[in-house]
């Protein structure tokens, strides 16, 4: 019974956050207006709503909220999965180089194609996956991939791509490309359109579905290679599925949102304090809380200053104190 309530809450919470987003912004909208706008579109009823509100709700705030929820969920779930797989609570969704790979891809596209958004998505996505592949190949010894060499591979690849990002910044045109690169790296959902949701949503959905399906196995994998093997796990296949799914989800997220740190590291820990460490509950909880968190933080970013505050800054500024508060309150869970 308690379990069912938790699951219902996990589903409702992100929906509520998305709904709340529709009211937030420079033009305040009343509840009646938002509901009418939504219902009008869904049921094809004409309430004579001005085009401006129609656009505001359906084309600006709604896609942004949905994308925020998807990105937040993806980052948090990938982070939780990697923490389990690598048996390391300090690991985040970017551990295998996805984020820095994507960052370099985006920077390259900004320089080469003058900031064409499709080019940025494609390059960011491709380089994100390239980075994971390189980490995997580096981590591969004796036909197996021991966890520690995989993490080392990720660290090496991350730092190489970080250096390449710096190089891209160094050679970029300082008046046009450089600010674009810097802003991209700080993360934003400002450009969200339905088109982005559909395209980037494919890898994100595949990744999330895979991780949700295999989530109990992540428990077993977190026992370490030798024990997982003796418990009957096919290490190559199961690890491979987790890595591929988490990488797809993260790559899909960062290629549209830029680099948003913190979510993939700390949301899983916040969930551990609330629902415990069993990945059967932890993974869905991370999905839900990650989604809520990013949508709410994005709302804060849209209202606290005249111009928008980049997401990557706010996630840490808001999440940090919240994490500390929770740590004190739960006395660190069972750690």
């Amino acid at each position: 019974m308690r379990k069912r309530i938790i699951y219902i809450l996990l589903i409702i919470a992100p929906l509520l956050c998305v709904f709340a987003t529709l009211f937030v912004g420079r033009y305040p909208l009343s509840l009646a207006l938002v509901v009418k706008t939504l219902w009008g579109q869904i049921a094809l009823v004409n309430y004579d709503i001005p085009d401006m509100y129609q656009t505001l709700v359906w084309d600006i705030r709604m896609p942004r909220a949905i994308l925020g929820a998807m990105v937040g969920g993806c980052l948090a779930v990938s982070g939780a999965s990697f923490q389990g797989l690598f048996r390391n609570p300090l690991v985040s969704s970017g551990i295998l180089g996805v984020s820095s790979g994507a960052g370099f891809g985006a920077a390259l596209a900004i320089i080469l194609f003058q900031g064409n958004t499709s080019a940025i998505y494609i390059f960011a996505f491709a380089f994100a996956l390239l980075a994971v592949l390189l980490s995997y190949l580096i981590g591969r010894v004796y036909n197996t991939t021991p966890t520690i060499t995989l993490v080392l591979g990720g660290v090496v690849v991350s730092s190489i791509f970080s250096a390449l990002i710096s190089f891209a910044k160094y050679v970029a045109d300082p008046y046009q490309d450089l600010p674009a690169i810097v802003f991209w790296l700080m993360g934003s959902l400002a450009t969200a359109r339905y088109h982005d949701i559909l395209v980037a949503g494919i890898p994100m959905s595949i990744g999330i579905a895979g991780l949700l399906a295999i989530r109990w196995r992540i428990n077993v994998l977190s026992m370490g290679d030798r024990e997982a093997h003796s418990l009957g796990v096919n290490l190559a296949v199961d690890k491979g599925i987790v890595i591929v799914c988490a990488s797809l989800a993260t790559a899909g997220a960062v290629c549209v949102s830029g680099i948003i740190g913190w979510v993939g590291l700390v949301i899983p820990h916040i969930c551990r304090m609330i629902v415990g460490n069993d990945n059967r509950v932890l993974i869905p909880a991370s999905l839900s809380l990650g989604a809520c968190f990013l949508v709410l933080v994005d709302n804060v970013g849209r209202i606290i200053t005249g111009s928008e505050m980049p997401l990557g800054i706010l996630t840490a500024l808001i999440g940090g104190p919240f994490f500390v508060w929770l740590l004190k309150k739960t006395k660190g869970g069972s750690w």
Binding site: R87, N219, S222, M223, G224, G276, N277, D278, G333, S334
Partner: peptide, 9 residues
């Protein structure tokens, strides 16, 4: 020796 990482039940 089992290295205990996460506090599973």
């Amino acid at each position: 020796s089992h290295e205990r990482t996460f506090p599973y039940q």
